[in-house]
């Protein structure tokens, strides 16, 4: 199998603190790769390095064989690497539909002239994009919320809206930062269903998640981080019983 997304000895330092050191991860095509680890392990920093929000201080990020290290966040998104945020970032004063349309920003290609005169081509492209946005909302089960302000949605729905916003871009890789954090058990089921459907469509998913049950249920690969290092990686069932992982989560047994 070929790696879609790959990091090569990636490291990130804030002053004297090593947030990430020597991280080499391969995300295979069609994988649902979970990244777990205790708080402060560097999971979100890792995502930020992959998506251009942080510039790694060492190492490289490769996407489909091309180096994308240190590219601007917008450029990374344009390549087809889309992400959600840990502390959901919706555009609160825009409607749910417009939030999703914004996700399809790069697919709306009308030029200024056709926008100004509302040309037939512009209206047709906008209508298609609207239909796709509605289809994305339908996919995550939010179609009936299209006209509400995103800021008025309850927490769980915002999480799903973020997913719809990612999906409309037809991404190659989706990075989900704690998709199931803080949601009710009903919402959790809904989210796990949606994530699995994204994966079933052939989209590569990388997911940071604390909910170990969810990870064991849907992930195909697991990487465990602690203190910015990889302490284990492999199949979910192997990682679960790895003594280093247990130690990182539970602490060392006192002698």
């Amino acid at each position: 199998m070929t790696a879609v997304l790959q990091t090569d000895h990636l490291s990130l330092q804030f002053g004297g603190v090593n947030a990430l050191s020597d991280l080499s991860i391969e995300v295979d095509e069609g994988a649902l790769h979970a990244i777990i680890g205790p708080n402060g392990a560097g999971k979100t920093s890792f995502f930020n390095c992959l998506t251009g929000y942080y510039k790694p201080t060492g190492g490289a990020v490769r996407f489909q064989g091309n180096e994308v290290t240190g590219l601007d966040a917008a450029k990374v998104a344009a390549l087809g690497i889309r992400r959600t945020f840990q502390n959901i970032r919706v555009f609160p004063k825009m409607s749910v539909l417009e939030n999703v349309l914004a996700g399809g920003h790069l697919r709306a290609t009308s030029n200024l002239l056709s926008i100004t005169v509302a040309s037939r081509g512009f209206r047709r492209r906008e209508r298609l994009l609207h239909e796709e946005a509605m289809a994305s909302l339908e996919f995550v089960g939010l179609a009936d919320q299209w006209n509400n302000l995103a800021g008025d949605l309850p927490y769980g729905m915002r999480k799903r809206m973020e997913l719809a916003r990612v999906l409309i871009a037809n991404p190659v890789v989706v990075l989900l930062d704690e998709p199931a954090a803080g949601v009710s058990s009903v919402e959790r089921e809904e989210l796990s269903r949606v994530i699995r459907r994204i994966h079933d469509q052939g989209t590569c998913v990388v997911m940071i998640e604390h909910d170990v049950d969810l990870v064991m249920e849907i992930a195909t690969d697991v990487t465990v981080l602690d203190n910015g290092r990889i302490i284990a990686s492999g199949l979910p069932q192997d990682v679960r019983t790895n003594p280093d992982v247990i130690r990182a989560y539970m602490g060392r047994k006192r002698k």
Binding site: D72, A74, A77, L106
Partner: peptide, 11 residues
Amino acid sequence: EDEDAAKAMGI
């Protein structure tokens, strides 16, 4: 609304 999130849209 949110400049960082806007970048994630490819803007």
